[in-house]
Protein backbone atom coordinates (compact mmCIF):
# COMPACT_ATOMS: atom_id res chain seq x y z
CA UNK A 1 0.00 0.00 0.00
CA UNK A 2 2.48 2.62 1.15
CA UNK A 3 5.11 1.50 -1.36
CA UNK A 4 2.70 1.81 -4.29
CA UNK A 5 1.54 5.16 -2.93
CA UNK A 6 5.16 6.27 -2.80
CA UNK A 7 5.74 5.23 -6.42
CA UNK A 8 2.58 7.03 -7.50
CA UNK A 9 3.56 10.28 -5.78
CA UNK A 10 7.15 9.96 -7.02
CA UNK A 11 5.80 9.53 -10.56
CA UNK A 12 3.70 12.67 -10.13
CA UNK A 13 6.71 14.60 -8.85
CA UNK A 14 8.88 13.66 -11.82
CA UNK A 15 6.03 14.18 -14.28
CA UNK A 16 5.33 17.72 -13.12
CA UNK A 17 9.03 18.51 -12.79
CA UNK A 18 9.40 17.56 -16.47
CA UNK A 19 6.43 19.74 -17.37
CA UNK A 20 8.15 22.67 -15.63
CA UNK A 21 11.05 22.28 -18.02
CA UNK A 22 9.12 21.52 -21.18
CA UNK A 23 6.33 24.10 -21.07
CA UNK A 24 7.05 27.08 -23.27
CA UNK A 25 5.07 29.63 -21.28
CA UNK A 26 6.94 30.83 -18.17
CA UNK A 27 3.72 31.28 -16.20
CA UNK A 28 2.70 27.67 -16.91
CA UNK A 29 6.17 26.59 -15.77
CA UNK A 30 5.68 28.39 -12.48
CA UNK A 31 2.28 26.76 -11.96
CA UNK A 32 3.73 23.30 -12.61
CA UNK A 33 6.48 24.13 -10.15
CA UNK A 34 3.81 24.77 -7.51
CA UNK A 35 2.31 21.33 -8.16
CA UNK A 36 5.79 19.78 -7.96
CA UNK A 37 6.37 21.34 -4.56
CA UNK A 38 2.96 20.16 -3.46
CA UNK A 39 3.97 16.57 -4.24
CA UNK A 40 7.07 17.13 -2.08
CA UNK A 41 4.68 17.98 0.74
CA UNK A 42 2.94 14.65 0.14
CA UNK A 43 6.31 12.86 0.41
CA UNK A 44 6.99 14.52 3.76
CA UNK A 45 3.54 13.53 5.03
CA UNK A 46 4.21 9.92 4.06
CA UNK A 47 7.44 10.10 6.07
CA UNK A 48 5.33 11.30 9.04
CA UNK A 49 7.27 14.58 9.09
CA UNK A 50 4.25 16.81 9.59
CA UNK A 51 6.14 19.94 10.53
CA UNK A 52 8.48 19.73 7.57
CA UNK A 53 5.51 19.05 5.30
CA UNK A 54 3.58 22.10 6.39
CA UNK A 55 6.64 24.36 6.38
CA UNK A 56 7.49 23.18 2.88
CA UNK A 57 3.91 23.96 1.95
CA UNK A 58 3.98 27.49 3.37
CA UNK A 59 7.52 28.56 2.54
CA UNK A 60 7.87 27.13 -0.94
CA UNK A 61 4.41 28.06 -2.07
CA UNK A 62 4.88 31.58 -0.71
CA UNK A 63 8.27 31.75 -2.37
CA UNK A 64 6.79 30.67 -5.69
CA UNK A 65 4.26 33.45 -5.40
CA UNK A 66 7.20 35.87 -5.39
CA UNK A 67 8.64 34.03 -8.39
CA UNK A 68 5.26 34.38 -10.08
CA UNK A 69 5.46 38.14 -9.62
CA UNK A 70 8.99 38.18 -10.98
CA UNK A 71 7.90 36.24 -14.05
CA UNK A 72 5.05 38.66 -14.64
CA UNK A 73 7.07 41.79 -14.09
CA UNK A 74 10.49 41.01 -15.51
CA UNK A 75 9.88 38.66 -18.41
CA UNK A 76 8.30 39.45 -21.71
CA UNK A 77 5.17 37.34 -21.71
CA UNK A 78 5.17 36.27 -25.34
CA UNK A 79 5.04 32.54 -25.89
CA UNK A 80 8.23 31.09 -27.23
CA UNK A 81 10.28 34.08 -26.21
CA UNK A 82 12.30 31.75 -24.05
CA UNK A 83 12.94 29.05 -26.64
CA UNK A 84 15.24 31.11 -28.83
CA UNK A 85 18.67 30.08 -27.62
CA UNK A 86 21.77 29.58 -29.70
CA UNK A 87 23.00 26.04 -30.36
CA UNK A 88 26.15 26.64 -28.35
CA UNK A 89 24.08 27.47 -25.27
CA UNK A 90 22.00 24.34 -25.73
CA UNK A 91 25.13 22.18 -25.99
CA UNK A 92 26.60 23.72 -22.85
CA UNK A 93 23.31 23.15 -21.03
CA UNK A 94 23.17 19.48 -22.04
CA UNK A 95 26.78 18.87 -20.97
CA UNK A 96 26.24 20.58 -17.61
CA UNK A 97 23.04 18.63 -17.00
CA UNK A 98 24.71 15.32 -17.84
CA UNK A 99 27.56 16.13 -15.44
CA UNK A 100 25.02 16.74 -12.68
CA UNK A 101 23.22 13.48 -13.43
CA UNK A 102 26.48 11.51 -13.34
CA UNK A 103 27.45 13.08 -10.04
CA UNK A 104 24.05 12.38 -8.51
CA UNK A 105 23.85 8.80 -9.73
CA UNK A 106 27.44 8.16 -8.63
CA UNK A 107 26.83 9.50 -5.16
CA UNK A 108 23.62 7.50 -4.83
CA UNK A 109 25.41 4.32 -5.89
CA UNK A 110 28.19 4.98 -3.42
CA UNK A 111 25.59 5.09 -0.65
CA UNK A 112 24.98 1.71 0.92
CA UNK A 113 21.28 1.31 0.17
CA UNK A 114 21.16 -2.33 1.23
CA UNK A 115 21.31 -1.14 4.83
CA UNK A 116 18.42 1.34 5.16
CA UNK A 117 18.40 3.78 8.00
CA UNK A 118 15.90 2.75 10.64
CA UNK A 119 14.27 5.54 12.56
CA UNK A 120 14.45 5.03 16.32
CA UNK A 121 11.18 6.85 16.92
CA UNK A 122 8.32 7.12 14.48
CA UNK A 123 7.33 10.59 15.69
CA UNK A 124 10.67 12.24 15.01
CA UNK A 125 9.08 14.63 12.53
CA UNK A 126 6.51 16.01 14.95
CA UNK A 127 6.99 19.61 16.07
CA UNK A 128 7.83 18.87 19.69
CA UNK A 129 10.56 16.33 18.97
CA UNK A 130 11.99 18.36 16.13
CA UNK A 131 12.16 21.46 18.33
CA UNK A 132 13.84 19.55 21.16
CA UNK A 133 16.46 18.09 18.84
CA UNK A 134 17.10 21.42 17.12
CA UNK A 135 17.61 23.29 20.38
CA UNK A 136 19.75 20.68 22.13
CA UNK A 137 21.73 18.39 19.86
CA UNK A 138 21.97 20.65 16.80
CA UNK A 139 21.98 24.04 18.51
CA UNK A 140 25.19 25.33 16.91
CA UNK A 141 24.33 24.51 13.27
CA UNK A 142 20.84 25.88 13.87
CA UNK A 143 22.13 29.19 15.19
CA UNK A 144 24.75 29.47 12.45
CA UNK A 145 22.15 28.94 9.74
CA UNK A 146 19.91 31.54 11.39
CA UNK A 147 22.82 34.02 11.28
CA UNK A 148 23.28 33.16 7.60
CA UNK A 149 19.60 33.92 6.95
CA UNK A 150 19.82 37.15 8.92
CA UNK A 151 22.81 38.34 6.90
CA UNK A 152 20.99 37.48 3.67
CA UNK A 153 18.03 39.53 4.88
CA UNK A 154 20.20 42.53 5.78
CA UNK A 155 21.93 42.24 2.40
CA UNK A 156 18.59 42.29 0.60
CA UNK A 157 17.45 45.37 2.51
CA UNK A 158 20.77 47.08 1.78
CA UNK A 159 20.45 46.36 -1.93
CA UNK A 160 16.86 47.55 -2.08
CA UNK A 161 17.56 50.75 -0.15
CA UNK A 162 18.00 53.94 -2.11
CA UNK A 163 21.44 55.46 -1.93
CA UNK A 164 20.71 58.71 -0.15
CA UNK A 165 23.96 60.42 -1.16
CA UNK A 166 23.41 59.96 -4.87
CA UNK A 167 19.79 61.03 -5.02
Amino acid sequence: MSISLFYFVAFLTIFFALLVIFSKNPVHSVLYLIVTFFTFTLHYIMLNAQFLAIVNFIVYMGAIMVLFLFVLMLLNLNEGSIGSKSNLLKMVGVIAGMCLIITLVGSLRALDTSDPLVLQTQDLGLVKNLGKVLFSKFLLPFEISSILLLSAMIGAVLLAKKDIKQV
Partner: peptide, 10 residues
Protein backbone atom coordinates in the same frame (compact mmCIF):
# COMPACT_ATOMS: atom_id res chain seq x y z
CA UNK B 1 -3.11 17.32 13.21
CA UNK B 2 -0.43 18.59 15.53
CA UNK B 3 0.47 21.46 13.20
CA UNK B 4 -3.13 22.67 12.89
CA UNK B 5 -2.33 26.36 13.14
CA UNK B 6 0.36 26.17 10.46
CA UNK B 7 -2.04 24.21 8.26
CA UNK B 8 -4.51 27.10 8.34
CA UNK B 9 -1.67 29.47 7.59
CA UNK B 10 -0.72 27.34 4.57
Amino acid sequence: INVGMLYIFG
